[in-house]
Design a protein around this nucleic acid. Sequence first.
RNA 1: GCGGACGUGGUGGAACUGGUAGACACAGCGGACUUAAAAUCCGCCGGCUCCGGCCUUGCGGGUUCGAUCCCCGCCGUCCGCACCA
Length: 873
Amino acid sequence: MATERYNAREAEARWQAAWNQADVYATSNDDPRPKYYVLEMFPYPSGRIHMGHVRNYSMGDVVARFRRARGFNVLHPMGWDAFGMPAENAAMQNKVHPKAWTYQNIATMRDQLKSMGLSLDWSREFATCDVDYYTRQQSLFLDFLAAGLVTRRQSKVNWDPVDMTVLANEQVIDGRGWRSGALVEQRDLTQWFLRITDFAEDLLTALDGLDRWPEKVRIMQRNWIGRSEGLRVRFELEDAPAGHATVEVFTTRPDTLFGMSFLALSPDHPLTATLAAKDPQLAAFVEECHHMGTSVAALETAEKKGYDTGLSVVHPFDGRRFPVHVANFVLMDYGTGAIFGCPAHDQRDLDFARKYGLTVVPVVLPEGADPATFTVGDEAYTGDGRLFNSDFLDGMAVPDAKEEVARRLESREIDGAPAGRRQVNYRLRDWGISRQRYWGCPIPVIHCEACGVVPVPKADLPVALPDDVEFDRPGNPLDRHPTWRHVDCPSCGRPARRETDTMDTFVDSSWYFARFTSPRADTPTIPAVADAWLPVDQYIGGIEHAILHLLYSRFFTRAMKATGHLSLDEPFRGLFTQGMVVHETYRAADGRWISPAEVRIEEKDGVRTAVMAESGEAVEIGSIEKMSKSKRNTVDPTDIIESYGADAARWFMLSDSPPERDVEWTDAGAQGTARFLQRVWRLVGEGVAIAPPAGTPAPAGASGLALDLRKAAHRALAAVGETIEGLRFNVALAKIYEFVNVLGSAVANERGRLESDPAAAAALREALEILVQVMAPMTPHLAEECWRVLGHDGFVSRQPWPEVDAALLVEDEITLPVQINGKKRADVTVARDADAPTVEAAVLALEAVQRALEGKAPRKVIVVPQRIVNVVA
RNA sequence: GCGGACGUGGUGGAACUGGUAGACACAGCGGACUUAAAAUCCGCCGGCUCCGGCCUUGCGGGUUCGAUCCCCGCCGUCCGCACCA
């Protein structure tokens, strides 16, 4: 009988409507079953979804559907990370309001996501630019402010003089603004900060407990937080200017104090400023340092430069005097902004000392080196060893010497304070969230001449963005709005001024996962509900968020705990970072990039060539790269879904490559997937014609073909379950292919037996149902359609995952490979529970073994039960 | 410079805890069906071979009855951080 081809376009639309009608994927907060929260990083509404989204959301949907079938109450929501600069850029370029642009994009992308057939609870959807959302965010900010988790202070920022805004470090490329191309200036601005550094230690130590996170991400966060233990050491200054009797440095190597040859100040150090006020040459040097730029390239090639201030400091132990320099490589915002230089054991200090002819005295002797001859050339010695040339430290190991110096300096007073203080330092900085931008969450404070900074009372929230703004000039439109910023002081009632800075959009994404648990509540969360759902059991997204978003969210969760909005520390129990979608690139003879849609690939004798589909003009096939607009090597998910179907797109995104690695999109692969899905459709159609009706139980105690089919089905069922659980989707799919191959050849070659043996036919029905159910997480539309063909009403999406019959997974007889001297030479088939002597006897009787032994007795026979036999001749 | 990951057929990859290397797929080749094409189905598909075998998981060693897996040393690719004292 001829089976109709599966019409993905028609069937997918029909099942999406049916799911929607029956509200299949809505989740209740009151469901008593165990919870499972699966979340994919929500998208920025840039315009259209891309294949990276398809991959990300396909993975999450497999997890969600699988867990639902396993009996969990699954929360699988979707929303929009909707504030940000692209909306304002669009406003400036195309004269469209950021709000209109954003919501239009959301509408488009929502339709695209819906066409993928994702099992999302759309009733919980929100965008971070919804007033309802950012109102709660303002409320959170006020709580953080009251709890002392927010500060306002001056800091150096990257200022783009053309766009007139602060730029994040990531937005400064080679010293220029990423959009304007203007040279970025360092400016001192008053900024709002969230005090993430208060949690530095906890954010660091808690990483150890995140055992379902990729090790790579944990290491990146660990390095980012950058904890180091050291000592602050205060030096007495000679001939010091008023107010600068001492200068303090931070060091992690107090053991090398006797190897000191200079002290260096940051150009931004207060003492530098004091000295520069009276020393025009120093002032010029400082100015020069500020113009050196912050780009990677500039730092890499930057020469060590210094300026001798003429001052001296006194060594705390032996009273020697050392010069004080201002040096370009000393950072003001790490440690104390000053260092002591020990050239023998620090490469930067060594470079500096060589340049300015300062002494180099080694004080740590590598093991086995001769103290009389050991010298340091162009490479500082930073390794371990024993102290020498170091007075009372001589002979000590490095750790002991560190301890001894700390101990002595702690109990020593200079100028009324201890000369040394142990200190733990972090690289992590407080999080500056002020942005001079319109399209963000307004910071809810008011500046009053009389009262200072006054928080907006919660009753007055929201501080809503005005709609009537102009984007005809760069800068922040909120600053130029005729009325918005004018407001009465909530405290004294006199005219005051609103804060016109908005929040960094990373704030918006730092708590959205908590908001999904009760998205319409009039408080940021309902604590009991948030606690019931959180943590997110499986979070899936790109590695590019390894630090910022994931660290901010970890901080935010702690801050929300401190302010009573939930009561846990870690938001994401399991984290998975998926690889990118990559594609071949194509270039025309004149060098312009050509999109895959315009290219036709031809293959002759294994050589692939490409031509323009229309003109036949030759096209060069280039390297495989991340899909990007600039290289035009993108494919549009909607085109793919229209030509192959959503199920095929989903399946292909999950097949072949392990999910953490990059996957290459190829048209041939997509076609192969579509062919496979047609094959499954035919198989189910042909199979159901032979199999007994729905409801027929699987045959118990089956044998022969029935048993073979049952074993194949239950083995696939077990393997698919295990591999999905481990997020090894590519392996899950391979197991399904294997299973389909078994079923396909049974239906094709064993038709007679299937028709004459009711047990085999019943086993076939069971197998087909299992096939449809294990495929349902990946290809839900096709699965629903097949489920109907198999004679069932209702949704396969609501079916529980079938139980594995463990008895069917074990073989009574097993075939063991037989090795002779580690090389496979034969097979032996024995009972599964045969003991070692029995197996050995069977092996030695084998003809191949006899031949290899040439009549001699084996030296040794190793029997690994149920695995392998190795005969050592 | 520091930190990390990876390296398996033409390609993507599989291989439980040290136990048959190459599952599964893509591409390719051969064949069947067809007036033809599409679709579908069947077969082959790491290398060498004196047809008994031999070699093969980047390279060189080591441990082991046995190594893609563990250890040491190289080579290569990719990613992250980067004057953090």
